[in-house]
Structures are given as C-alpha cells and as structure tokens.
Design a protein around this nucleic acid. Structure first.
Length: 676
RNA sequence: GUCCCCGUAGCUCAACGGAUAGAGCGUUGGCCUCCGGAGCCAAAGGUUAGAGGUUCGAAUCCUCUCGGGGACGCCA
C-alpha cells in the first residue's frame, strides 16, 4: 500500500481528457465522468462528448467512436462502448476491481481515501447554546450537522477549529442576572413566609392568563409592586442596588449543589423573559438607580446596558454570578454532547462575551472607513444589494440608538478574530435558513471592510426546521419547546422496548448499551439522511424502524457481520490469518461483485458529501452498502464457502464492517454495536 | 409590498444539466435443511404544482402563475 489510491473517477477523467484531446485537437476538454445512472450502462459513464460535438458541429456518436478509439483504459475497464446519443459507457475489469479491493482493505485507517492535497484552517461555528437555558430541539440540527462537518473535514486532513459561539451576552445577560435576583428574592420570601418560590407559582399563572387581559394586568401589577418594594429594601442609598440581600446570596452560590440551583436559575430566567414579554405595552414602570423610571419591560435591557457599560469593580459580583451560571449551563450541555457523540470541548467555547471588548473598535473602524453611518440614532452599514420593504437600502445595524451592540457587531468581531488570530482560510457557519439574510449582510460587510479578504471563504450552511408529525414546528403537546435530553430519553426508551422484544436474553446492561446506541443513533441518522436544506418531519416510529434507511438497519447490518466473526472460531476458521495471507481474490457471484464495486467507492461518497455538505449522500452510500451486503449475505455463504472463495468473502465482510463503522462512528458520530 | 427558499409515487424522502425520474414505508406476491428473517427477491404506484422559454438533452437553468414557509431597522 503506497497510500496513493487515486479515485477511479479521477483516473478515468484523466484518460478521457487525453482521448478527447486527440479526437478533437482541443485542450481542457471536460470528460464529465459520472457514476452510471443504470447498471445496464456499466459502472461509469462519460457525458463529455455531446457538448463538444455540438460545439464542433460534428455528429456526436461519430466523435464518441473516435474518442473510444483513442482511449487507453485496458488496465481498468472492459472495452468502452458508445451508447445512446453519444455516451461512453465504462465497465471495470474484474482484475482491476479485485486489485483495488485488496488495496483498499490493506489501508486500515483511511480505507483507500487520500487526504486533501490542500489542507486549510477551517473554522466551524456551530451548536451555540444559550446561557441559562437547556438545549432544546432547536439546537439539535446545528450541533450534529456541524459536528459531522468537523469530523469529515478532520478526515480529509484539514485543520479544524471548532467554535462554540455561546449565547452568553446581549439581552440575556441582564435577564439572567435579573432572574438570579428573583431566585434570591423568592427564596427570601419563602423563608420569611414559609411558602414556595413565588415564580414557581406565578410563571404558570402568567402563561395561563396571557390572553385574559384584566387578570393578566392585575397579576403583573402585583408583581411589579413587590418588585419595587424588594428593590428598595435591598438597596443602600450610598452604594446602589442589591447590597443587603442580593450580595450575600451571590456569595453563597458557589457552595450550592448544581442539582437544586440549576432548575431555579432556568425558571427564574424564564420568569423574567415571560414577564417582560407580557407586560410590553401595559404601561407599567419601575424606578431604577441609574436611569430613573423606565418601562417595566425594559428592566432586563437596562441591566444589560448597565453591565455592558461598566467595567468597574462594582460589577464584580454580577460577573462571578455570571460565571457560575455559565459553568452550570455548559455542564448541562456537555452531558448532551456526550450522549450525542459531539466532539465539542471547553477549549472550543468562545461565546459572544469573548468579543465584547472588541465591539467599540469594530464600530469605530467601520465609521473611519466610511462604511458605517448614523441613521435614526443607530449606527448602520448599508451593504449593496439589500433593500427593505420600502425599497430603500437595508441597514445592517451595528450599534443601537441606546448605545448597545448587537449580534451583527459580535459576528463582525468574530470574523476579524478568526481571520487575524485563528488564521482561518475558511469559516463555516451552521445555522438555520432563517438567518440567511443576516449572514449575507454580514459577509458583504466583512468583505467591504477587508476583514475577510478574497482568499478567505465564508460559507453559511443552512438547514430547515424540524417539524412534528402534524407538519407544524416540533413542540410538546402543550406547545412548549422540547428539551434535547428528554427527546433522547424517549428515543432510548423506545429503542429499549424494541431490544427487549427482539433479544430478551441479553444481559440488562447490554440491552441498555444497545438501546442508547440505537435510540441516539436513530435521532441523528434521521437528521443526516434527509437533505439538510428542507424542513424535516420528526417521527420516532420512522427513525426507529428496523427496515429502510435508518440507524437500526445500519447497526443491524454491522452486528450481523460481527456475528459471523464470533461464529468463525466454532467453525475452525481463523479470520485473521486467512485475511493476512490473502493476496488475490476471485469475485464470481454478482452479489460479490456488486458489493466490491461499492466498497471501493467510499472515497467518492466522502468527497461528494463534503462538496456541498450533503450528509445525506454519505448515509445514502452507507445504506446502499448495507443493502448490498445483505444481498451478498443471503446469496453467498461465508464460513461455509469453498476454500478458494472463503478468503474473498471474509475480506468483503471485514471491509464492509470497517466501512460502516468508519462512516457511522468516525464521520457521523453514531455508535455501532457488536450485537443487538 | 420587496427579496429568499420550497412544491417529485398515498406517506417520508433521493436524484452530480444526461439515457426509461429512484429508494424506504404502506399495499400485493414470492423466499426459512444454511453464518442473526430486524433479512432477501419481485410487482403495482408519476404529465416532477401549472404555463412558457434556453439546451443535442431540463425535476435541475430563465420568465410568469398558483400554493406553502421564511426574512425584511434597533432580538439572536
């Protein structure tokens, strides 16, 4: 094995290009070699003759015949045939196929797939959970699609820099601190009055009467009254907010266990969010130390602005509280990442907050370059080609009229960082399609500013919405967001029931292990196996089906091969030594040939997948492989095969298992199991 | 209103400008002396939303119509 197994399509294109040159006298002809669309046309087809014939005004079949005469592929193919209007059909020779199969099998790590000749520094921005929230289904696609992209890039030999752009700044910052403050106050009230935490009662109440205006207003008014009272009793006039009760509360946080604190923090944060949404437009106000009386719904934003504008020591307590919430959130995220087999690690975290110090400079530089101007109090860039509903230039707002920065600003700072500090040749963003316009404007602005030079590729990889079986966005029955951890629990539980039914004799921990692999694998595989750009309908029943293009079917195919390996010893077959001594194979049965041809195309599948990040092309390849294996398996006995056939068949089993495992586990992060 | 994406078998989805548009589920019919039947083989099922156009060739590119989704100034 010399490590240079050139893809067959590339070899054929090269030969065809030469033949086209001879037949037409032209250089740089496009041979257009593709996988044959139909097995009757052979294995590969060249479509390049027809456009050339048209251009040269020559009869296409005649030209094709001349090309075939000039074509030297005897070492690879049977004699080429001209077909239809001018196709050239190519069929691999069995000797070449057998040789290639042995070469691929002899390459344990890369399965005959060469690394790229042009390695890049590729930044992949994906997952991006939010602080103080649990990961929900909205994070699933970005997380697993981004992860698979990273894995494929790694395999191709690129230098991958994962970036988890955590939502840890902006409006949430103030709201989370405010949520913590409510946790503090609610605990104080509960201690004084020996009741439960007030937001545990009031949050559901708020949601219930969201459409009952008079009840809602009464409730919000009462909450506001208590808020003001609590705020006043917690404040020393000479120092400001939150010294008496809130400060000691924050100091006590680090001593408290995550399990009790985390649910309270999330709930407190939801409470603030819900409350601010509902009181909007109600006319309620609240006094503040810094800004005087402000609308009640603006208090979170006020807290954000204060924190963003103050680097002084007074904010130290909030900052440490913030760190605590952040750590808790990520702890929870890593539990989900681990289950999903996602490769993100703490060193990949670079949240919005990391760019916060760079934001003023971003705005200043754009202003100095004449690209950013003030408009209606905000600082905006007007990249070319974007219009609003009136047909006027559409602003890319980089600083709000209240002085706060936005995600546009953060994203621009991130581009500068990634290009200047991380030396990115390419930056890939994995987010849903709704953000397409934002990224188009972001990229346009970064190009105008020269922060992303022409040599740096900027790619927005989008995906569609996850829908429930009713065709509406995927929600719980009550309309809430579905937590990712709970979604995985249900998938695993359902998988467990199936394992229980199919294979009741396995030990319990074996069943649990299999159920985890099958359940989580099913969720991921279902996502990967559809075109990422279309919306996709989530269905436990379909993704866990044992038939069809599903994770369980793939895992089953793998387990069957492993079962053969386990049986081998009992049949006096030593697979290792038999494979080690194999220097030639003879493929006779059509199912063997079909499987072998597919096995040597793994590299083509990986390349096609990476070209436009169509992960469904990889799952399709793997599914075809599993199907071809199953056909081979039913038609061709392996352990009981004649001596001359057994080695080749063992090789097909071995390479199929390794290819499935590589594709599933190494590239998609889906576990395989020895039995199921 | 402007712009973007989508519309393919009953359902869920494929198809790199190429030949007779493919799978799976479901439906119907075959295949268990044999390594895991969670399997294999086969049949039926389509005017690729509609109408024009470009092309040797269009589900794919262009124009329009209809239907669905999304974005569109201080959320991310």
């Amino acid at each position: 094995m010399d490590g240079t197994l050139k893809p067959i399509i590339a070899m054929l294109e090269e030969r065809l290009r030469g033949a086209l040159e001879i037949a037409t006298g032209r250089k740089d002809c496009q041979p257009l070699v593709r996988l044959a669309g139909d097995a009757r046309f052979g294995d590969y087809q060249a479509n390049g003759v027809m456009p050339l014939a048209k251009e040269l005004g020559r009869p296409p079949r005649d030209l094709a015949q001349r090309v075939v005469e000039a074509l030297r592929v005897e070492d690879l193919c049977e004699p080429p045939e001209v077909a239809g209007p001018g196709f050239i059909n190519l069929r691999l020779r069995p000797e070449f196929l057998a040789r290639r199969l042995l070469d691929v099998a002899a390459d344990p790590d890369r399965l005959g797939v060469d690394p790229t000749e042009r390695p890049q520094n590729v930044v992949v921005d994906f997952s991006s959970p939010n602080i103080a929230k649990e990961m929900h289904v909205g994070h699933l696609r970005s997380t697993i699609i981004g992860d698979a992209i990273c894995r494929v890039l790694d395999f191709q030999g690129h230098h991958v820099i994962r970036q988890n752009h955590i939502g840890d700044w902006g409006t949430q910052f103030g709201r989370v601190i405010l949520g913590l403050w409510h946790v503090c106050m609610a605990e104080k009230h509960a201690a004084d009055e020996s009741g439960g935490l007030y937001f545990e009662r009031e949050l559901p109440a708020l949601r219930e009467c969201a459409h009952d205006t008079s009840r809602l207003e009464a409730l919000c008014k009462a909450i506001r009254e208590r808020h003001e009272k609590d705020w006043r009793t917690d404040s020393k006039v000479e120092e400001g907010d939150g010294e008496i009760v809130f400060k000691p509360f924050l100091e006590s946080l680090s001593a408290r266990p995550d399990e009790t604190l985390w649910p309270s923090i999330q709930l407190g944060y939801q409470y603030v969010t819900t409350l601010e949404d509902l009181v909007t437009g109600m006319g309620l106000t609240v006094p503040t130390r810094q800004a005087g009386v402000i609308p009640y719904e603006d208090i979170g934003r006020h807290a954000t602005a204060m924190l963003q504008n103050h680097e002084n020591s007074k904010n130290q307590q909030e900052y440490s509280a913030w760190e605590r919430v952040r750590r808790l959130t990520m702890h929870c995220c890593y539990q989900v990442y681990d289950r999903l087999g996602v490769t993100l690690r703490p060193e990949d975290e670079r949240g919005e907050s990391a760019y916060q110090p760079m934001l003023p400079q971003v705005v200043e530089d754009l202003k100095a370059a004449g690209l950013a101007v003030e408009s209606e109090g905000a600082i905006c860039v007007f990249p070319e080609g974007f219009k609003n509903k009136q047909g006027d230039p559409l602003p890319f707002i980089i600083r709000k009229s209240d002085g706060a920065y936005l995600y546009a600003t953060t994203d621009l700072a991130a581009i500068r960082y990634r290009v200047d500090e991380l030396h990115a040749d390419r930056i890939i963003y994995v987010t849903d399609f709704r953000q397409a316009q934002h990224f188009a404007m972001l990229f346009a602005t970064a190009r105008m500013a020269g922060w992303a030079p022409a040599g740096v590729e900027l790619q927005h990889i989008t995906f569609g919405t996850m829908l429930g079986e009713n065709g509406r966005p995927f929600k719980t029955r009550s309309g809430g967001t579905v937590k990712l951890a709970e979604l995985l629990d249900e998938a695993v539980e359902r998988a467990m029931a199936i394992v229980q039914e199919k294979n009741p004799d396995l030990p319990d921990d074996g069943k649990r292990h299999i159920a985890e692999a099958v359940g989580v694998g099913a969720v991921k595989y279902a996502d990967y196996s559809t075109n990422r750009e279309s919306d996709y309908v989530f269905s436990f029943d379909r993704m866990l089906a044992m038939e069809g293009n599903t994770a369980p079917y793939m895992q089953y195919a793998y387990a069957r091969i492993k079962s053969i390996e386990r049986k081998a010893a009992g049949r006096d077959v030593d697979i290792q030594s038999e494979l080690a001594g194999l220097d030639a194979v003879t493929l006779t049965d059509p199912a063997e040939v079909d499987l072998a041809k597919h096995l040597i195309r793994y590299g083509e599948a990986v390349a096609a997948t990476a070209k436009e990040w169509r992960l469904n092309l990889l799952t399709q390849y793997l599914y075809d492989l599993a199907q071809k294996f199953s056909a081979f398996y039913t038609n061709c006995p392996v352990l009981g095969a004649a001596a001359g056939q057994r080695g080749g068949r063992l090789l097909l089993c071995d390479l199929t298992a390794r290819t499935i495992r590589h594709g599933l586990k190494d590239l998609l992060g889906i576990a395989v199991v020895e039995q199921m």
